[in-house]
Design a protein around this nucleic acid. Structure first.
Lengths: 176, 176
DNA sequence: AACAGTTACCTGCCCGAACAAGTAAATACC
DNA sequence: GGTATTTACTTGTTCGGGCAGGTAACTGTT
């Protein structure tokens, strides 16, 4: 919504130093959006690397964490808890089952559903997963004081709230 | 790293209201990490919806924006600009080409490389893409003042810097 | 009991992302 | 010149994620 320079090579449009991060221009409209994008990419990458050593793929750890905490759940419950997709959950559970971290037991009350429960083998991972999460937290908030962490968290949640609000309110347009 | 309650139903472990966002517990170790996770998911979802109307898939728009701004580029250049993957770029370009938004021309100087250039058809999208980005920005930073936006941006960039630093420094451990 | 409608789950398809391997061309070095 | 290394790109695989469609089971209504 700004720069009418179709072919300006560089020109630091931003306020200060943006050289350290990828995309220099292109992000003109939407600096925060773009920052979220980049931060998310990096964060995801780190999480992935941390998790891979444990033997989980990104996304699977959330399922396991819920199972560890809440015990056996139906897929639908997991979908709701993770705000995920039924199809995705089907495949994720299949892979976790195949990896031996999860077991399926037919629901005693509903012949359509099955209960997903963590295996004994999976419990060995729990500590590692939790450690990985703390490690990631220390990396991402490395040089922040406790107050700054609280502030950062608040900021992130505020942005999240904005999107959540936009998703609910049919006023906007996004979820149409 | 905390709650030893394997089957506690709810119990708001957090400091205050966490009911509005998905994962209630499970995120004990790593609140910021988890917030990034959630924000990223939401943000990605919105971006996807905005882009889909235009006819692009998330990720493709960044390629196009660079091409619009910088003109024809080799795939390697795009990879560097987006900090992406060569394999991913190959397929992304193939899909963009197939969709008619991009054209390939053999490099006059390097028989290995080809130049990717935006088609005339693609230019019709430019404005829409830029609009989508602004819209997204307005959604995510809806109720923030200019000062607050600057602060939020700074926070996001600071977190990003921490991760970047951790990635470079072989001191840590993540990129092993 | 018979119907429609919902729910739980599965499958196929397409996309981006990351990893691993491989091909061909360009470049560096001897 | 000839060989080794680097570079540009492609392909295959696996994963999460979203969308569409399909089946079986449960539920509410008539």
């Amino acid at each position: 919504m700004a720069e009418p320079a179709p072919q300006a090579g560089r020109e630091p449009t931003g306020t200060a130093q943006e050289a350290s991060v990828p995309v220099p221009a292109a992000a003109g409209g939407g600096p925060i959006s773009h920052a979220i994008f980049r931060l998310a990419r990096l964060h995801r990458m780190f999480a992935g690397q941390l998790l891979r050593r444990i033997g989980l793929h990104p996304g699977q750890e959330l399922v396991m964490m819920h199972l560890w905490e809440l015990g056996p759940q139906r897929q639908t419950d997991l979908v709701r808890l993770l705000d995920s997709d039924a199809a995705t959950m089907t495949r994720t559970v299949q892979r976790l089952e195949q990896a031996g971290f999860v077991r399926r037991r037919p629901s005693p009350t509903d012949k359509r559903a099955s209960l997903i429960e963590p295996t004994a083998a999976s419990h060995a991972l729990r500590r590692e997963v939790e450690e990985a999460w703390s490690r990631l937290e220390d990396l991402v908030a490395a040089d922040l004081t406790d107050d700054e962490r609280a502030a950062a968290l608040h900021t992130l949640e505020r942005l999240e709230q904005n999107l959540l609000r936009a998703a609910d309110d049919p006023a906007g347009a996004p979820p149409e």
